[in-house]
Nucleic acid binder design. Structure first.
Length: 288
DNA sequence: AAGCTGGTCAACCGCCAATGA
DNA sequence: ATCATTGGCGGTTGACCAGCT
């Protein structure tokens, strides 16, 4: 069954926005605030799709947008963030106040890609182009330093809970002679801190236990080790010797794609659901 | 002057996750 | 548990413009 269209396309304008449409949209949002994009066009007297209104506001009309050329510092920050996050433009935009994901995506595709290629760096892998072309077969499955200047991080889902979607991040530092550990894992108490080594990025991630209502905790006073909380229960990796731990919502399958969402409102990587206070919340990230 | 080419960027499209009934 | 709706994201498109032949 297909989705119903977000609006009645026969009666909506498309293409470039006129000055009058912009003014109507700005006036409406100033008076009523953002939200309920579906009903906004009608309420504001616009013959536009709600999605189109949202995009126009976010990418062009928002008063906090910074217009103009990207600075060299912004360039380098985008490159660093892209090497860490990949094409997660909204996350990258969250680190660049006044910039939108669309703007950064366009800027990446038109400027930075070429800039990296000119430097001899593959813009996709952030590795030197020659090395990149010969090492694409490797598919690391565990956190392990390899022989190149790369750290690979992977959380692979297993049959045991918690269910965590496969997360894989390769980070390389072309031109660096020494091996750089991009992230440090620090297991303490009931959480694992992942700290990056770009001090200017403030990319600290906080990985909490995937189970706030931990059934194990009811049986044992000892806290779970980090590996146990990642689902490596009773495996070689587990140091606490627990029996199977269940994750809220993880085994029922009732949560569809959100099995990796933790009940405290944070997902596995510490990103908040609809929350602007998380360490890596969308659009909530503040520069140091 | 006209046509072609490549760069830029606003806007659109399709998909997915979250949410609520 | 299921389904419809909504918001949000990343990829792609196409209009516009400048530079070149």
């Amino acid at each position: 069954m297909g989705r119903s269209p977000c609006c009645e396309k026969a009666h909506t304008n498309k293409g470039a926005w006129t000055k009058e449409e912009d003014e109507r949209l700005v006036a409406y949002i100033k008076a009523h605030g953002e939200g309920c994009w579906r009903s906004l066009p009608k309420a504001a007297g616009l013959l536009r799709c709600g999605k189109s209104c949202r995009l126009r506001w976010i990418n062009y009309l928002r008063p906090d947008l910074k217009r103009g050329n990207f600075t060299e510092e912004e360039d380098e920050l985008i490159i660093k963030l892209h090497s860490l996050l990949g094409n997660k433009w909204s996350l990258i935009a969250g680190r660049l106040p006044g910039r939108t994901d669309n703007e950064i995506k366009n800027y990446w595709n038109t400027h930075i890609r070429r800039k990296l290629i000119n430097r001899g760096i593959d813009p996709t892998t952030h590795r030197p182009i020659q090395e990149s072309s010969t090492s694409q077969d490797s598919k690391p499955t565990q956190l392990e330093p390899n022989t190149s200047n790369t750290i690979n991080i992977s959380f692979t889902s297993s049959s045991t809970t918690p269910k965590v979607e496969t997360f894989q991040e390769s980070i390389s530092f072309p031109g660096k002679q020494e091996k750089i550990s991009m992230l440090t894992f620090k297991e303490e108490k009931n959480e694992c801190l992942v700290q990056e080594k770009f001090p200017d990025l403030n990319l600290e991630l906080r990985i909490s236990l995937p189970d706030v209502v931990d059934r194990c905790q009811g049986k044992s006073k000892t806290p779970r080790c980090f590996k146990c909380s990642l689902g490596m229960i009773n495996g070689l990796e587990c140091r606490c010797g627990r029996m199977r731990c269940d994750v809220v919502g993880g085994s029922s399958g009732s949560n569809k794609g959100s099995d990796n969402i933790i009940s405290n409102g944070f997902d596995f990587l510490g990103l908040a659901k609809k929350d602007t206070t998380s360490l890596l919340g969308f659009r909530s990230l503040e520069m140091k």
